[in-house]
Design a protein around this nucleic acid. Sequence first.
DNA 1: GATGAATGAGTATTCATTCAT
DNA 2: GATGAATGAATACTCATTCAT
Lengths: 200, 200, 200, 200
Amino acid sequence: MKKGERRKQELLDIAYRMFITRGYENTSIDDIIAEAGIAKGTYYYYFQSKEQTLEEVIGMMIEKEIEAAGSILDSPLPVPQKIVAIIASIRPAPEEQTIEGALMQPENIIMHQKIKRRLIEKVVPLLTKAAEEGVEQGIFSCDNIPERIRMMLVISNEIFDNYSFTDRDIDVFIDITEKILGAKSHSMDFIRQLINAPSV
Amino acid sequence: MKKGERRKQELLDIAYRMFITRGYENTSIDDIIAEAGIAKGTYYYYFQSKEQTLEEVIGMMIEKEIEAAGSILDSPLPVPQKIVAIIASIRPAPEEQTIEGALMQPENIIMHQKIKRRLIEKVVPLLTKAAEEGVEQGIFSCDNIPERIRMMLVISNEIFDNYSFTDRDIDVFIDITEKILGAKSHSMDFIRQLINAPSV
Amino acid sequence: MKKGERRKQELLDIAYRMFITRGYENTSIDDIIAEAGIAKGTYYYYFQSKEQTLEEVIGMMIEKEIEAAGSILDSPLPVPQKIVAIIASIRPAPEEQTIEGALMQPENIIMHQKIKRRLIEKVVPLLTKAAEEGVEQGIFSCDNIPERIRMMLVISNEIFDNYSFTDRDIDVFIDITEKILGAKSHSMDFIRQLINAPSV
Amino acid sequence: MKKGERRKQELLDIAYRMFITRGYENTSIDDIIAEAGIAKGTYYYYFQSKEQTLEEVIGMMIEKEIEAAGSILDSPLPVPQKIVAIIASIRPAPEEQTIEGALMQPENIIMHQKIKRRLIEKVVPLLTKAAEEGVEQGIFSCDNIPERIRMMLVISNEIFDNYSFTDRDIDVFIDITEKILGAKSHSMDFIRQLINAPSV
DNA sequence: GATGAATGAGTATTCATTCAT
DNA sequence: GATGAATGAATACTCATTCAT
């Protein structure tokens, strides 16, 4: 990686961190360059605008997450576990969850939405492939797989991102998930253990 | 209604319209008072801040929608139709959908999210009551009703608000809805006609 | 004059002085408000933009100059003297000439040009009326009066504004002026005395 | 021409074109180097500053125009035709007239003025020589020739550059021109044909 | 109840120029 | 000859909020 690229990556990382912790709107260019210790001109040498920085930050995150999802897909896990693991992996970054309790604070909504939409678009095809595998193996039984996958993602996002969820939410989530995919009852109970694991 | 209250209501209506068509962030106090033909001091006589105006605007909307939902609940419709009608009734205001194609434009996200959350909170109890009625009548069969209702709302919001949905989305939505509530297969096919009706 | 109007007039005067002495481009809003001792918001309360301020400043100048020209026109002077006096009166403000020797400095060009054009448009009709009077009195003899007037103005502007002119320039100017209007030879020699007067 | 000189000439041409079409102020160094496909350092290897680039661009133009004027002067045309042809030849570049209607747009004023002044200074001596020839031949009759020439140039600039001129403007221009030089009445009517020719 | 003048911190963006490599 | 990363001062404009009248 050349000098210029390294610096840009550095800036991207700083911007990412700040956008996530303080929100996009609440992060000024001045904040970023102060943190990076560079001149304003330098920032604009690497980025055309604040908005474009956001796009690049999001692109970077998406890329990373998709990569992670891809390697799960290629792993030797059973299909249902694969699917659940991927869904779990695209959850918001821990910074978003913890620092300042910032997640879903109004200042984060815009970026969060942008990320979620673009992530869903990218992840749906991956999960569709996994689910089709499940159908072939007789574990699942359903049609219109991409649409069903999308709904699963939407449900999981909504439940696990926003609110403090209860055991009953989890029960319902498991039940619905099984029914969406046409899996046997209780065949996805393993989700409960995943959710109670540290990262959540 | 006294003079002062009338004026406040008038301002609230103007703010509501402007927030929805241009977005909260893109509407300045100056815009509002220009439209209302009043002085800035007058605005601040009625509202403490811009943010508080937003809260009041949202409160007003919620109230209206809950009222509409309540009267559906009291109507003599069959239970499944009631539920679906209420879900349909809390869809975003037509202004949001049509004007400038503004819905889900970044500038609207913040308000949209706020509304959705508060609306869901208010509507869930109503729908829960309806669903319990359905269970008693043997039409539905499920537990954890409030949680299930919330997921239905989330799914319907996501599908019908944001994207241009397809027939396959609808098929899946109907299937999932039936399974969430434990209704008989195809017992909720009537949804399809509702969706293809003009207002949707 | 109300409070607000007085303040605006004050700002207009300050802006005028600064634009003329330092040039429009070289005068920042910060300069103006520092000089006026007001907050930035106050400036923007009275003016929509820097550009619009320039327009108002120019409008104000034009108005003053046209007024002066009008009263010359209504005076009992002989026609040739009237015309020359008006032409002399629309010369650039003494500040422009003296302070920093700013006139025709690149930074002043833009404003100067704008003023000159608009002034010429306004003054041509006045002078045309005067010249027609002269034709009726048999002092002048020419057709296409407005076009001739405009050329006289252009010549006088060019000569007297920009360069240090010589006696020979004046001789030629007098000669041409007489010929443009069809006046008798040497009938406008009085111009020479005007030019050598203090204000030039 | 060596490699370095060729590159500099190339840059000069690009700068010339951009200054004229977009205006000096609206053309950034970045614009120029992007167009030229070189690095910023390279630009500053050839030019000391943006301002100095402008000077060189103007110098280049002047040189070309003076050369053209010189060859007209050496041609076997009758004196009045020579003079008019030279005046016509120093009109603004066609790019200035056509592209974006840019001429006299504020962004062009500065450069335009600079060019005009320097061009007049250079052209006056040439035309003076021609006019003196005319006087010797008895076609013209006047004194203070350089001053008269300058006024002719000023008039022609003003009329033909800025405004859409009318037939009456042309009539007046011809009349004045004849009188400035002391030529016989109607002896310069040929100007009318020149003006109605395509290039004007 | 109503006015509107005044505030001032905050923000993104531009651009000519330098200089180590 | 040529590069391009780095600079940083400069700038116009926004807007929610206050308060004396």
